[in-house]
Write a protein that binds this DNA or RNA. Structure first.
Lengths: 232, 232
DNA sequence: ATATAAACCTGCCAAACCGCAGGTTTTTTT
DNA sequence: AAAAAAACCTGCGGTTTGGCAGGTTTATAT
Protein backbone atom coordinates (compact mmCIF):
# COMPACT_ATOMS: atom_id res chain seq x y z
CA UNK A 1 0.00 0.00 0.00
CA UNK A 2 1.74 3.09 -1.25
CA UNK A 3 1.13 6.53 0.25
CA UNK A 4 1.33 8.03 -3.24
CA UNK A 5 -1.83 6.27 -4.33
CA UNK A 6 -3.65 7.13 -1.10
CA UNK A 7 -6.55 9.56 -1.40
CA UNK A 8 -6.85 10.65 2.22
CA UNK A 9 -5.86 14.27 1.86
CA UNK A 10 -6.34 14.92 5.57
CA UNK A 11 -4.02 12.09 6.68
CA UNK A 12 -1.11 13.81 8.40
CA UNK A 13 1.40 11.53 6.69
CA UNK A 14 -0.03 12.21 3.26
CA UNK A 15 -0.38 15.90 3.99
CA UNK A 16 3.31 16.16 4.90
CA UNK A 17 4.51 13.78 2.24
CA UNK A 18 8.08 14.55 1.27
CA UNK A 19 9.73 11.82 -0.76
CA UNK A 20 13.38 12.56 -0.03
CA UNK A 21 12.93 12.89 3.69
CA UNK A 22 10.39 10.16 4.20
CA UNK A 23 10.63 7.35 1.68
CA UNK A 24 13.02 5.35 3.85
CA UNK A 25 10.52 5.41 6.70
CA UNK A 26 7.50 4.83 4.53
CA UNK A 27 9.04 1.61 3.29
CA UNK A 28 9.03 0.33 6.83
CA UNK A 29 5.32 0.80 7.36
CA UNK A 30 3.13 -2.26 7.27
CA UNK A 31 -0.44 -2.65 6.10
CA UNK A 32 -3.17 -4.56 7.88
CA UNK A 33 -6.62 -5.55 6.71
CA UNK A 34 -9.25 -6.14 9.40
CA UNK A 35 -12.68 -7.57 8.97
CA UNK A 36 -15.75 -6.32 10.79
CA UNK A 37 -15.53 -6.81 14.53
CA UNK A 38 -11.77 -7.37 14.63
CA UNK A 39 -10.06 -6.04 17.75
CA UNK A 40 -6.70 -4.89 16.38
CA UNK A 41 -5.59 -2.84 19.40
CA UNK A 42 -6.04 -4.51 22.76
CA UNK A 43 -6.21 -2.46 25.95
CA UNK A 44 -3.28 -3.25 28.20
CA UNK A 45 -1.16 -4.83 25.48
CA UNK A 46 2.35 -3.50 24.66
CA UNK A 47 2.36 -0.54 22.31
CA UNK A 48 2.82 -1.48 18.68
CA UNK A 49 3.09 1.95 17.19
CA UNK A 50 0.62 4.26 15.49
CA UNK A 51 -2.16 3.29 13.11
CA UNK A 52 -3.68 5.29 10.28
CA UNK A 53 -6.95 4.33 8.64
CA UNK A 54 -6.56 4.03 4.90
CA UNK A 55 -10.13 2.92 4.40
CA UNK A 56 -12.78 1.94 6.92
CA UNK A 57 -14.43 2.79 10.22
CA UNK A 58 -13.20 2.07 13.73
CA UNK A 59 -14.41 2.53 17.30
CA UNK A 60 -11.90 3.39 20.02
CA UNK A 61 -12.90 2.36 23.54
CA UNK A 62 -11.86 1.82 27.13
CA UNK A 63 -13.14 -1.16 29.05
CA UNK A 64 -14.34 -0.64 32.61
CA UNK A 65 -15.93 -2.62 35.42
CA UNK A 66 -17.80 -5.80 34.48
CA UNK A 67 -16.73 -5.32 30.88
CA UNK A 68 -18.76 -2.14 30.42
CA UNK A 69 -17.07 -0.22 27.68
CA UNK A 70 -16.81 3.50 27.07
CA UNK A 71 -16.37 4.42 23.43
CA UNK A 72 -14.11 7.48 23.44
CA UNK A 73 -14.36 8.22 19.76
CA UNK A 74 -15.14 6.96 16.29
CA UNK A 75 -12.61 7.25 13.50
CA UNK A 76 -12.72 7.16 9.72
CA UNK A 77 -10.53 7.52 6.67
CA UNK A 78 -7.19 9.25 7.22
CA UNK A 79 -7.46 9.36 10.98
CA UNK A 80 -4.90 8.37 13.58
CA UNK A 81 -5.26 5.71 16.29
CA UNK A 82 -3.02 4.68 19.16
CA UNK A 83 -1.79 7.63 21.18
CA UNK A 84 1.08 6.17 23.00
CA UNK A 85 4.55 5.12 22.33
CA UNK A 86 4.89 8.82 22.91
CA UNK A 87 4.85 9.67 26.55
CA UNK A 88 5.58 7.50 29.51
CA UNK A 89 3.36 4.49 28.98
CA UNK A 90 4.30 1.35 27.18
CA UNK A 91 0.86 -0.18 27.09
CA UNK A 92 -2.21 0.76 25.12
CA UNK A 93 -4.85 2.39 27.25
CA UNK A 94 -7.53 1.95 24.63
CA UNK A 95 -8.84 -0.82 22.45
CA UNK A 96 -9.73 -0.41 18.80
CA UNK A 97 -12.30 -2.48 16.90
CA UNK A 98 -13.13 -2.32 13.20
CA UNK A 99 -16.79 -1.50 12.58
CA UNK A 100 -16.51 -2.77 9.02
CA UNK A 101 -13.79 -4.07 6.73
CA UNK A 102 -10.89 -1.70 7.38
CA UNK A 103 -7.42 -1.23 5.92
CA UNK A 104 -4.79 0.20 8.26
CA UNK A 105 -1.24 1.53 7.92
CA UNK A 106 1.01 0.86 10.91
CA UNK A 107 4.26 2.57 11.87
CA UNK A 108 6.39 1.33 14.75
CA UNK A 109 7.06 3.80 17.53
CA UNK A 110 10.75 3.99 16.56
CA UNK A 111 10.04 4.69 12.90
CA UNK A 112 7.45 7.25 13.82
CA UNK A 113 9.73 9.00 16.27
CA UNK A 114 12.61 9.14 13.77
CA UNK A 115 10.32 10.54 11.11
CA UNK A 116 8.92 13.17 13.48
CA UNK A 117 12.40 14.38 14.32
CA UNK A 118 13.18 14.86 10.67
CA UNK A 119 9.94 16.51 9.55
CA UNK A 120 8.94 19.33 11.90
CA UNK A 121 5.68 20.10 10.10
CA UNK A 122 4.64 16.51 10.66
CA UNK A 123 5.26 16.83 14.39
CA UNK A 124 3.43 20.13 14.40
CA UNK A 125 0.42 18.61 12.67
CA UNK A 126 0.34 15.66 15.03
CA UNK A 127 0.60 18.06 17.94
CA UNK A 128 -2.32 20.03 16.55
CA UNK A 129 -4.32 16.85 16.18
CA UNK A 130 -3.75 15.98 19.84
CA UNK A 131 -4.56 19.52 20.97
CA UNK A 132 -7.87 19.43 19.12
CA UNK A 133 -8.75 15.99 20.38
CA UNK A 134 -7.99 17.25 23.86
CA UNK A 135 -10.39 20.13 23.42
CA UNK A 136 -13.01 17.71 22.21
CA UNK A 137 -12.42 15.34 25.09
CA UNK A 138 -12.54 18.07 27.71
CA UNK A 139 -15.76 19.32 26.20
CA UNK A 140 -17.08 15.79 26.53
CA UNK A 141 -16.16 15.66 30.19
CA UNK A 142 -18.24 18.76 30.73
CA UNK A 143 -21.14 17.32 28.74
CA UNK A 144 -21.11 14.10 30.74
CA UNK A 145 -21.29 16.08 33.94
CA UNK A 146 -24.04 18.45 32.86
CA UNK A 147 -26.23 16.98 30.15
CA UNK A 148 -29.38 14.95 30.63
CA UNK A 149 -29.68 11.55 28.98
CA UNK A 150 -31.77 12.95 26.15
CA UNK A 151 -29.19 15.66 25.48
CA UNK A 152 -26.31 13.21 25.53
CA UNK A 153 -28.05 10.97 23.03
CA UNK A 154 -28.85 13.89 20.74
CA UNK A 155 -25.25 15.04 20.97
CA UNK A 156 -24.04 11.55 20.08
CA UNK A 157 -26.38 11.30 17.09
CA UNK A 158 -25.25 14.65 15.72
CA UNK A 159 -21.60 13.69 16.16
CA UNK A 160 -22.04 10.37 14.36
CA UNK A 161 -24.08 12.00 11.62
CA UNK A 162 -21.36 14.57 11.03
CA UNK A 163 -18.50 12.13 11.37
CA UNK A 164 -19.69 9.47 8.96
CA UNK A 165 -22.08 11.49 6.87
CA UNK A 166 -25.52 10.50 5.61
CA UNK A 167 -27.19 9.31 2.44
CA UNK A 168 -30.71 10.66 1.89
CA UNK A 169 -30.69 11.61 5.56
CA UNK A 170 -29.80 8.12 6.79
CA UNK A 171 -26.57 7.94 8.78
CA UNK A 172 -23.83 6.12 6.90
CA UNK A 173 -23.10 3.57 9.58
CA UNK A 174 -24.98 0.89 11.44
CA UNK A 175 -24.35 1.10 15.15
CA UNK A 176 -26.32 -0.90 17.68
CA UNK A 177 -28.24 0.93 20.41
CA UNK A 178 -25.71 -0.53 22.80
CA UNK A 179 -22.83 1.07 20.91
CA UNK A 180 -24.58 4.42 20.87
CA UNK A 181 -25.10 4.19 24.62
CA UNK A 182 -21.48 3.20 25.19
CA UNK A 183 -20.51 6.37 23.38
CA UNK A 184 -23.15 8.68 24.85
CA UNK A 185 -22.50 7.57 28.41
CA UNK A 186 -25.77 5.91 29.32
CA UNK A 187 -27.49 2.53 28.94
CA UNK A 188 -28.97 0.71 25.99
CA UNK A 189 -32.49 1.09 27.38
CA UNK A 190 -32.17 4.82 27.81
CA UNK A 191 -30.97 5.21 24.23
CA UNK A 192 -33.94 3.17 23.01
CA UNK A 193 -36.33 5.22 25.10
CA UNK A 194 -34.79 8.47 23.87
CA UNK A 195 -34.96 7.37 20.23
CA UNK A 196 -38.63 6.48 20.75
CA UNK A 197 -39.20 9.93 22.18
CA UNK A 198 -37.42 11.66 19.32
CA UNK A 199 -39.45 9.59 16.87
CA UNK A 200 -42.71 10.64 18.53
CA UNK A 201 -41.53 14.26 18.42
CA UNK A 202 -41.01 13.89 14.67
CA UNK A 203 -37.30 14.66 14.89
CA UNK A 204 -35.98 11.35 13.58
CA UNK A 205 -37.09 8.21 11.81
CA UNK A 206 -35.75 4.75 12.51
CA UNK A 207 -36.24 2.31 9.65
CA UNK A 208 -34.89 -0.87 11.23
CA UNK A 209 -31.77 -0.13 13.17
CA UNK A 210 -30.93 2.68 10.81
CA UNK A 211 -31.36 6.26 11.90
CA UNK A 212 -32.61 9.18 9.85
CA UNK A 213 -32.28 12.68 11.27
CA UNK A 214 -35.10 14.65 9.71
CA UNK A 215 -33.87 18.11 10.66
CA UNK A 216 -30.34 18.54 11.96
CA UNK A 217 -30.86 22.18 12.91
CA UNK A 218 -33.91 21.39 15.00
CA UNK A 219 -32.01 18.72 16.91
CA UNK A 220 -29.01 20.93 17.35
CA UNK A 221 -31.20 23.65 18.78
CA UNK A 222 -32.12 21.42 21.70
CA UNK A 223 -28.53 21.20 22.88
CA UNK A 224 -27.30 24.56 21.61
CA UNK A 225 -26.91 26.02 25.10
CA UNK A 226 -24.20 23.46 25.75
CA UNK A 227 -22.21 24.34 22.67
CA UNK A 228 -21.16 27.93 22.81
CA UNK A 229 -17.89 27.69 20.98
CA UNK A 230 -17.42 24.33 19.42
CA UNK A 231 -19.52 21.65 17.90
CA UNK A 232 -17.85 18.44 18.75
CA UNK B 1 11.61 37.09 34.52
CA UNK B 2 14.44 35.18 32.96
CA UNK B 3 14.17 31.53 31.99
CA UNK B 4 17.74 31.00 33.15
CA UNK B 5 16.80 31.73 36.76
CA UNK B 6 13.67 29.57 36.57
CA UNK B 7 13.69 26.39 38.64
CA UNK B 8 10.87 24.52 36.93
CA UNK B 9 12.87 21.66 35.47
CA UNK B 10 9.77 20.07 33.96
CA UNK B 11 8.70 23.21 32.09
CA UNK B 12 8.97 22.33 28.41
CA UNK B 13 10.58 25.66 27.61
CA UNK B 14 13.18 25.29 30.32
CA UNK B 15 13.75 21.64 29.43
CA UNK B 16 14.48 22.53 25.82
CA UNK B 17 16.35 25.72 26.58
CA UNK B 18 18.85 26.51 23.84
CA UNK B 19 20.25 30.01 24.00
CA UNK B 20 21.31 30.48 20.38
CA UNK B 21 18.07 29.21 18.90
CA UNK B 22 15.68 30.64 21.44
CA UNK B 23 16.93 33.86 23.03
CA UNK B 24 15.29 36.05 20.41
CA UNK B 25 11.91 34.47 21.17
CA UNK B 26 12.39 34.41 24.91
CA UNK B 27 12.88 38.15 24.90
CA UNK B 28 9.40 38.51 23.50
CA UNK B 29 7.71 36.68 26.28
CA UNK B 30 5.82 38.68 28.85
CA UNK B 31 5.33 38.04 32.53
CA UNK B 32 2.08 38.39 34.42
CA UNK B 33 1.38 38.32 38.13
CA UNK B 34 -2.12 37.35 39.21
CA UNK B 35 -3.60 37.53 42.66
CA UNK B 36 -5.88 34.92 44.11
CA UNK B 37 -9.16 34.60 42.23
CA UNK B 38 -8.00 36.42 39.11
CA UNK B 39 -9.49 35.14 35.88
CA UNK B 40 -6.62 35.58 33.42
CA UNK B 41 -8.03 33.46 30.59
CA UNK B 42 -11.67 34.07 29.72
CA UNK B 43 -13.70 31.44 27.90
CA UNK B 44 -14.78 32.71 24.50
CA UNK B 45 -12.19 35.50 24.33
CA UNK B 46 -9.66 35.71 21.46
CA UNK B 47 -6.59 33.53 21.92
CA UNK B 48 -3.70 35.37 23.47
CA UNK B 49 -1.07 32.67 23.22
CA UNK B 50 0.22 30.06 25.63
CA UNK B 51 0.81 30.49 29.35
CA UNK B 52 3.34 28.74 31.57
CA UNK B 53 3.14 28.80 35.34
CA UNK B 54 6.36 30.04 36.86
CA UNK B 55 5.02 29.88 40.38
CA UNK B 56 1.50 29.29 41.64
CA UNK B 57 -1.64 27.19 41.28
CA UNK B 58 -4.41 27.52 38.71
CA UNK B 59 -7.74 25.90 37.92
CA UNK B 60 -8.78 25.39 34.31
CA UNK B 61 -12.52 25.21 33.71
CA UNK B 62 -15.36 25.29 31.22
CA UNK B 63 -18.56 27.11 32.02
CA UNK B 64 -21.85 25.44 31.23
CA UNK B 65 -25.55 26.05 31.66
CA UNK B 66 -26.61 28.50 34.38
CA UNK B 67 -22.97 29.24 35.12
CA UNK B 68 -22.24 25.74 36.37
CA UNK B 69 -18.57 25.19 35.81
CA UNK B 70 -16.63 22.03 35.09
CA UNK B 71 -13.03 22.14 36.25
CA UNK B 72 -11.08 20.15 33.67
CA UNK B 73 -7.78 20.19 35.49
CA UNK B 74 -5.60 21.81 38.08
CA UNK B 75 -2.14 23.07 37.19
CA UNK B 76 0.98 23.96 39.12
CA UNK B 77 4.56 25.07 38.63
CA UNK B 78 6.02 24.56 35.18
CA UNK B 79 2.75 23.55 33.57
CA UNK B 80 1.16 24.78 30.36
CA UNK B 81 -2.22 26.47 29.93
CA UNK B 82 -4.16 27.55 26.88
CA UNK B 83 -4.32 24.88 24.22
CA UNK B 84 -5.31 26.86 21.23
CA UNK B 85 -3.81 29.18 18.81
CA UNK B 86 -2.82 25.81 17.42
CA UNK B 87 -5.62 24.23 15.54
CA UNK B 88 -8.61 25.83 13.96
CA UNK B 89 -10.12 27.87 16.78
CA UNK B 90 -9.33 31.46 17.54
CA UNK B 91 -11.12 31.63 20.85
CA UNK B 92 -10.29 30.13 24.18
CA UNK B 93 -12.55 27.25 25.08
CA UNK B 94 -11.52 27.27 28.69
CA UNK B 95 -11.16 29.79 31.46
CA UNK B 96 -8.26 29.91 33.89
CA UNK B 97 -8.37 31.28 37.42
CA UNK B 98 -5.49 31.66 39.88
CA UNK B 99 -6.09 29.75 43.10
CA UNK B 100 -3.40 31.80 44.83
CA UNK B 101 -0.87 34.43 43.89
CA UNK B 102 0.53 33.17 40.59
CA UNK B 103 3.28 34.31 38.24
CA UNK B 104 2.83 33.42 34.58
CA UNK B 105 4.94 33.55 31.43
CA UNK B 106 3.06 34.31 28.25
CA UNK B 107 4.09 33.70 24.63
CA UNK B 108 2.02 34.94 21.73
CA UNK B 109 0.80 32.32 19.28
CA UNK B 110 3.12 33.67 16.58
CA UNK B 111 6.21 33.59 18.77
CA UNK B 112 5.33 30.14 19.98
CA UNK B 113 4.76 28.84 16.47
CA UNK B 114 8.03 30.28 15.21
CA UNK B 115 9.91 28.77 18.11
CA UNK B 116 8.29 25.38 17.59
CA UNK B 117 9.35 25.34 13.96
CA UNK B 118 12.94 25.98 14.93
CA UNK B 119 13.24 23.58 17.87
CA UNK B 120 11.86 20.15 16.96
CA UNK B 121 12.40 18.68 20.42
CA UNK B 122 10.23 21.43 21.85
CA UNK B 123 7.43 20.55 19.46
CA UNK B 124 7.89 16.90 20.28
CA UNK B 125 7.64 17.57 24.01
CA UNK B 126 4.56 19.71 23.59
CA UNK B 127 3.04 16.97 21.45
CA UNK B 128 3.80 14.45 24.18
CA UNK B 129 2.19 16.71 26.74
CA UNK B 130 -0.99 16.90 24.71
CA UNK B 131 -1.00 13.14 24.09
CA UNK B 132 -0.74 12.46 27.81
CA UNK B 133 -3.39 15.00 28.69
CA UNK B 134 -5.60 13.36 26.10
CA UNK B 135 -5.15 9.98 27.75
CA UNK B 136 -5.98 11.50 31.07
CA UNK B 137 -9.03 13.26 29.72
CA UNK B 138 -10.35 10.17 27.97
CA UNK B 139 -9.87 8.20 31.17
CA UNK B 140 -11.91 10.87 32.90
CA UNK B 141 -14.72 10.52 30.40
CA UNK B 142 -14.89 6.85 31.25
CA UNK B 143 -14.84 7.57 34.96
CA UNK B 144 -17.67 10.08 34.70
CA UNK B 145 -19.74 7.51 32.88
CA UNK B 146 -19.05 4.61 35.21
CA UNK B 147 -18.14 5.77 38.71
CA UNK B 148 -20.51 6.42 41.59
CA UNK B 149 -20.42 9.78 43.36
CA UNK B 150 -18.33 8.37 46.20
CA UNK B 151 -15.81 6.94 43.76
CA UNK B 152 -15.59 10.18 41.80
CA UNK B 153 -14.93 12.16 44.96
CA UNK B 154 -12.26 9.72 46.11
CA UNK B 155 -10.66 9.88 42.69
CA UNK B 156 -10.66 13.67 42.85
CA UNK B 157 -9.12 13.73 46.32
CA UNK B 158 -6.33 11.38 45.31
CA UNK B 159 -5.62 13.44 42.20
CA UNK B 160 -5.44 16.71 44.14
CA UNK B 161 -3.34 15.10 46.83
CA UNK B 162 -0.86 13.86 44.25
CA UNK B 163 -0.90 17.00 42.18
CA UNK B 164 -0.24 19.54 44.91
CA UNK B 165 1.33 17.30 47.53
CA UNK B 166 0.68 17.25 51.26
CA UNK B 167 2.32 18.43 54.48
CA UNK B 168 1.87 16.07 57.43
CA UNK B 169 -0.92 14.42 55.48
CA UNK B 170 -2.83 17.65 54.85
CA UNK B 171 -3.33 18.52 51.20
CA UNK B 172 -1.30 21.57 50.16
CA UNK B 173 -4.20 23.57 48.80
CA UNK B 174 -7.46 24.93 50.07
CA UNK B 175 -10.29 24.16 47.72
CA UNK B 176 -13.92 24.74 48.60
CA UNK B 177 -16.33 21.80 48.54
CA UNK B 178 -17.89 23.51 45.55
CA UNK B 179 -14.60 23.46 43.66
CA UNK B 180 -14.06 19.81 44.46
CA UNK B 181 -17.54 19.02 43.16
CA UNK B 182 -16.96 21.07 40.03
CA UNK B 183 -13.92 18.92 39.38
CA UNK B 184 -15.38 15.57 40.43
CA UNK B 185 -18.54 16.02 38.39
CA UNK B 186 -21.20 16.20 41.10
CA UNK B 187 -22.74 18.75 43.47
CA UNK B 188 -21.44 20.53 46.54
CA UNK B 189 -23.86 18.67 48.80
CA UNK B 190 -22.80 15.28 47.51
CA UNK B 191 -19.15 16.12 48.11
CA UNK B 192 -19.98 17.20 51.66
CA UNK B 193 -21.98 14.02 52.25
CA UNK B 194 -19.17 11.88 50.83
CA UNK B 195 -16.55 13.61 52.96
CA UNK B 196 -18.75 13.01 56.00
CA UNK B 197 -18.97 9.36 55.06
CA UNK B 198 -15.23 9.05 54.57
CA UNK B 199 -14.67 10.76 57.92
CA UNK B 200 -16.99 8.28 59.66
CA UNK B 201 -15.14 5.43 57.94
CA UNK B 202 -11.90 6.76 59.38
CA UNK B 203 -10.35 7.32 55.95
CA UNK B 204 -9.89 11.09 56.17
CA UNK B 205 -9.93 13.93 58.66
CA UNK B 206 -11.23 17.42 57.92
CA UNK B 207 -9.82 20.08 60.19
CA UNK B 208 -11.76 23.12 59.00
CA UNK B 209 -11.94 23.10 55.24
CA UNK B 210 -8.60 21.34 55.03
CA UNK B 211 -8.43 17.69 54.12
CA UNK B 212 -6.16 15.04 55.55
CA UNK B 213 -6.01 11.66 53.83
CA UNK B 214 -5.09 9.22 56.57
CA UNK B 215 -4.20 6.29 54.32
CA UNK B 216 -3.76 6.86 50.61
CA UNK B 217 -3.49 3.16 49.82
CA UNK B 218 -6.74 2.33 51.56
CA UNK B 219 -8.56 5.02 49.61
CA UNK B 220 -6.96 3.99 46.38
CA UNK B 221 -8.08 0.42 46.96
CA UNK B 222 -11.70 1.49 46.80
CA UNK B 223 -11.37 2.71 43.24
CA UNK B 224 -8.64 0.34 42.08
CA UNK B 225 -10.92 -1.61 39.76
CA UNK B 226 -11.32 1.54 37.68
CA UNK B 227 -7.61 2.09 37.28
CA UNK B 228 -6.04 -0.84 35.53
CA UNK B 229 -3.32 0.92 33.66
CA UNK B 230 -2.99 4.50 34.75
CA UNK B 231 -3.51 6.55 37.82
CA UNK B 232 -4.72 9.89 36.66
C1' DA C 1 -13.26 41.63 69.96
C1' DT C 2 -17.27 41.86 67.56
C1' DA C 3 -20.01 41.84 63.47
C1' DT C 4 -20.61 40.10 59.06
C1' DA C 5 -20.02 37.06 55.46
C1' DA C 6 -18.77 32.86 53.59
C1' DA C 7 -18.42 28.18 53.78
C1' DC C 8 -19.95 23.94 55.60
C1' DC C 9 -23.31 20.43 57.07
C1' DT C 10 -27.74 17.50 57.29
C1' DG C 11 -32.56 16.08 56.62
C1' DC C 12 -36.04 15.81 53.36
C1' DC C 13 -38.37 15.14 49.03
C1' DA C 14 -38.80 14.94 44.08
C1' DA C 15 -36.84 13.83 39.79
C1' DA C 16 -33.78 11.21 36.98
C1' DC C 17 -31.87 7.16 35.96
C1' DC C 18 -30.90 2.21 35.77
C1' DG C 19 -31.71 -2.60 35.05
C1' DC C 20 -34.84 -6.50 34.94
C1' DA C 21 -38.29 -9.02 32.62
C1' DG C 22 -40.91 -10.30 28.91
C1' DG C 23 -42.50 -9.43 24.45
C1' DT C 24 -41.89 -7.83 19.50
C1' DT C 25 -39.49 -6.93 15.38
C1' DT C 26 -35.62 -7.33 12.41
C1' DT C 27 -31.72 -9.66 10.70
C1' DT C 28 -29.05 -13.63 9.77
C1' DT C 29 -28.43 -18.40 8.96
C1' DT C 30 -29.71 -22.82 7.14
C1' DA D 1 -38.75 -19.92 3.00
C1' DA D 2 -38.41 -21.36 7.59
C1' DA D 3 -35.87 -21.39 11.81
C1' DA D 4 -32.78 -19.32 14.89
C1' DA D 5 -30.45 -15.56 16.66
C1' DA D 6 -29.82 -11.00 17.47
C1' DA D 7 -31.43 -6.65 18.15
C1' DC D 8 -35.00 -3.74 19.58
C1' DC D 9 -38.78 -2.01 22.54
C1' DT D 10 -41.68 -0.88 26.87
C1' DG D 11 -43.53 -1.10 31.59
C1' DC D 12 -42.22 -1.14 36.28
C1' DG D 13 -39.88 -0.87 40.76
C1' DG D 14 -35.91 0.36 43.24
C1' DT D 15 -31.87 3.09 43.71
C1' DT D 16 -29.16 7.03 43.12
C1' DT D 17 -28.77 11.58 42.67
C1' DG D 18 -29.78 16.49 42.97
C1' DG D 19 -31.44 20.66 45.04
C1' DC D 20 -33.98 23.20 48.71
C1' DA D 21 -34.16 24.80 53.33
C1' DG D 22 -32.42 25.92 57.58
C1' DG D 23 -28.94 25.57 60.96
C1' DT D 24 -23.96 25.46 62.40
C1' DT D 25 -19.27 26.38 62.08
C1' DT D 26 -15.34 28.80 60.26
C1' DA D 27 -13.17 32.66 58.11
C1' DT D 28 -12.91 37.58 57.16
C1' DA D 29 -13.55 42.41 57.90
C1' DT D 30 -14.30 46.32 60.90
Amino acid sequence: MDCLSCTNAQCIIKKNYHFDKMHAYLEKKSTLVCKKGQNFIIEGAPVHGLYFIREGKVKVAKTGLYGKEQIVRFTGNGETIGHRGFGAGHFYQISAVALQKTTLCNFSTETMKAMLMEVPTLTYDLMTFYAEELNRSEAKVKKFAQMTVREKVIDALLYINRKFGHTKGIINIQLSRKEISDFAGTTEEQVIRTLSGLRKDGLIETPGKRIHIKDVELLRKEISEHNYFIDS
